[in-house]
Deep mutational scan, measured.
Amino acid sequence: WEITFERNGKRITVRTTDHRLLELFEKLWRNGADERELERLAEEINR
């Protein structure tokens, strides 16, 4: 799966075969987690 999240013109794409990681990322994104931390998390998930 691949999903791109966008907020205030900032886009972060997450790619993984584990839908649970996408759900976790989406919850953090929707709850306003720090964008720098989300970028780092996305990099780890995308590996």
Rank of each mutant, 00 (worst) to 15 (best):
R36T: 15
E35I: 15
N8D: 14
T17P: 08
L22T: 02
K10D: 03
K10V: 15
R20Q: 13
E43Q: 12
R11G: 07
E39Q: 11
L22H: 02
L24T: 09
W29T: 05
E44D: 13
T17N: 15
T4C: 08
L41E: 02
R11Y: 12
K10G: 03
R30F: 14
R15L: 04
T17Y: 07
T17A: 10
W29A: 09
F25S: 00
G32C: 06
G32D: 05
N8E: 09
R7Q: 09
R36F: 14
R20A: 14
K10Y: 06
A33F: 09
L24N: 06
T16A: 10
T16E: 01
A42M: 11
N8K: 04
N8I: 02
W29N: 04
A42G: 03
G32L: 08
I12G: 00
R7F: 12
H19G: 09
E2Q: 03
R15K: 13
L38D: 00
H19M: 14
R40D: 09
T16I: 10
R30S: 13
A42E: 03
L41S: 01
A33R: 02
W29I: 15
R36E: 14
A42W: 08
F25H: 00
R15Q: 07
W1I: 12
F5Y: 12
D18K: 03
R7E: 04
W29G: 05
L28R: 07
A33N: 05
R40H: 12
I3Y: 10
E35Y: 15
F5T: 01
W1V: 12
T13A: 04
E26W: 09
R20I: 12
R11H: 13
K10I: 14
E2T: 02
G32S: 05
K10F: 11
T13L: 06
H19K: 14
I12C: 03
E43R: 09
R7V: 15
R40Y: 08
L21A: 10
E26A: 06
D34M: 15
L28S: 08
I45G: 02
L24V: 09
T17V: 08
R11I: 11
G9F: 01
T4R: 02
E37P: 01
N31I: 04
F25D: 00
V14C: 01
W29S: 05
L38E: 01
E26N: 05
R11S: 13
R20V: 11
R30M: 13
R20S: 12
N46G: 07
R40E: 10
L38Q: 01
T17I: 07
I12T: 03
L22A: 08
W1K: 06
T13C: 05
R15C: 03
I12A: 01
T4S: 11
G9S: 04
L41I: 09
R11E: 08
W1G: 08
D34E: 09
E23L: 11
W1S: 06
T16Q: 01
T4W: 06
R20H: 13
R47A: 14
D18A: 06
L22P: 00
T16K: 01
R47H: 10
E44H: 14
E2I: 07
E43M: 09
K10P: 01
K10A: 10
E37D: 14
F5W: 05
H19I: 15
T13R: 06
I3K: 14
E43L: 09
E39I: 13
F5E: 00
L41A: 06
I45C: 05
R7C: 10
L38M: 08
F25L: 08
G32Y: 05
R30T: 11
N31A: 11
L22D: 00
F25P: 00
R36M: 15
A33S: 08
L21T: 04
D34P: 10
L21V: 08
L21F: 07
E23T: 08
L21I: 09
E37A: 11
R40V: 10
T4A: 08
E26D: 09
E2R: 00
E6C: 11
L28I: 10
W1Q: 06
I45D: 01
I45L: 06
E44G: 05
L28N: 07
G9M: 03
F25N: 00
E23N: 06
K27H: 14
N8W: 02
E44A: 14
R11N: 08
E6Q: 05
V14Q: 00
E6L: 04
T13I: 11
N46V: 09
R20C: 07
R47G: 14
E44P: 01
F5A: 03
E23Y: 04
I3W: 06
E39P: 01
L22C: 09
T17R: 11
G9N: 07
K10L: 14
W1F: 12
R15I: 09
K27V: 12
E2A: 01
R40F: 08
T13D: 02
T13Q: 07
E39G: 06
L24S: 06
T16G: 11
E2P: 01
R40C: 12
R30L: 15
T4V: 15
V14S: 00
R11T: 13
R7T: 12
W29L: 12
E39S: 09
I12K: 00
E43F: 02
T17G: 10
R36W: 14
A33Y: 08
L41V: 10
K27D: 15
D18I: 04
L21D: 04
L21C: 07
H19W: 13
E2S: 01
E37F: 14
N8Y: 02
E23A: 11
R40I: 13
W29Q: 07
T16H: 10
R47P: 03
L24H: 10
D34C: 06
E35S: 10
F5R: 02
N8M: 06
G32E: 09
A42C: 07
R15N: 08
R20G: 12
E37I: 14
E2G: 01
I3D: 02
T16Y: 05
R40A: 10
T17D: 11
R36G: 14
E37Y: 11
T4M: 09
R36V: 15
A33L: 10
K10H: 12
K27Y: 13
T4Y: 05
K10M: 14
D18Q: 05
L38H: 01
E2H: 02
K27R: 11
T4D: 07
L21M: 12
K27A: 14
I45N: 02
A33T: 11
R7G: 07
L22S: 02
L38G: 01
R11P: 06
G9P: 00
N31L: 05
E26P: 00
E39N: 07
E6R: 01
L22Q: 04
A42V: 09
I12N: 00
H19Q: 14
K27F: 14
F5N: 00
L21S: 05
E6I: 10
E23H: 13
D34R: 02
V14T: 00
R36Y: 15
N31K: 09
R15D: 01
R36N: 15
L38V: 03
T16D: 01
L38I: 07
L24G: 03
F25A: 01
I12R: 01
E23I: 08
I12V: 06
E35H: 12
R40S: 11
E26S: 03
N31M: 08
R40Q: 12
K27Q: 15
T13F: 04
G32W: 05
A33K: 03
A42D: 01
L38P: 00
L21E: 04
T4L: 08
A33P: 02
I45K: 01
H19C: 11
V14Y: 01
R7M: 13
E6K: 01
L28Y: 12
N8H: 08
L41P: 00
H19Y: 13
D18G: 02
R40P: 03
L22R: 05
N31S: 15
T17F: 08
R36I: 15
L28Q: 08
E39K: 05
R30C: 14
H19V: 14
A33G: 08
E6H: 05
L24C: 10
R20T: 14
R47C: 08
G32Q: 07
R11C: 08
E23G: 05
I3M: 13
W1D: 08
T13G: 02
L21R: 03
E35L: 15
W1T: 06
K27L: 15
L22E: 01
N46E: 07
F25Q: 00
H19F: 14
N8A: 07
R30H: 15
N31Q: 13
E6Y: 06
R47W: 05
E26L: 13
R11A: 13
L28V: 06
F5G: 00
R40K: 12
W29M: 13
E44Q: 13
E43H: 10
V14F: 03
R7A: 13
T16M: 05
E35V: 15
N46R: 07
G32T: 04
E26M: 11
H19E: 11
E2L: 03
R11L: 12
R20M: 13
R11D: 03
L28T: 04
R30V: 14
F5Q: 00
E6A: 02
N31Y: 04
R36Q: 13
I45E: 01
A42P: 00
T4N: 08
T17C: 08
E44W: 11
T13Y: 04
E2F: 05
N8P: 03
R20K: 15
F5V: 15
A33V: 11
N31T: 12
G9L: 02
N31G: 13
H19S: 11
E26F: 10
E37G: 04
G32A: 06
G9C: 05
R47F: 07
R20F: 13
V14G: 00
N31F: 03
L22M: 11
R20N: 13
R11W: 09
L38Y: 03
E23P: 02
E43K: 08
K10E: 06
V14M: 04
T17H: 12
E39T: 10
D18S: 09
E39V: 12
K27E: 15
D18T: 04
E37C: 13
K10W: 06
E26K: 06
E6T: 05
G32P: 02
L24Q: 11
D18R: 02
A42L: 12
N8V: 02
G32R: 03
T16R: 01
G32H: 09
T17Q: 11
F5S: 00
E37N: 04
L38F: 03
H19T: 12
R40W: 09
H19A: 13
I12H: 04
L22F: 09
R30G: 13
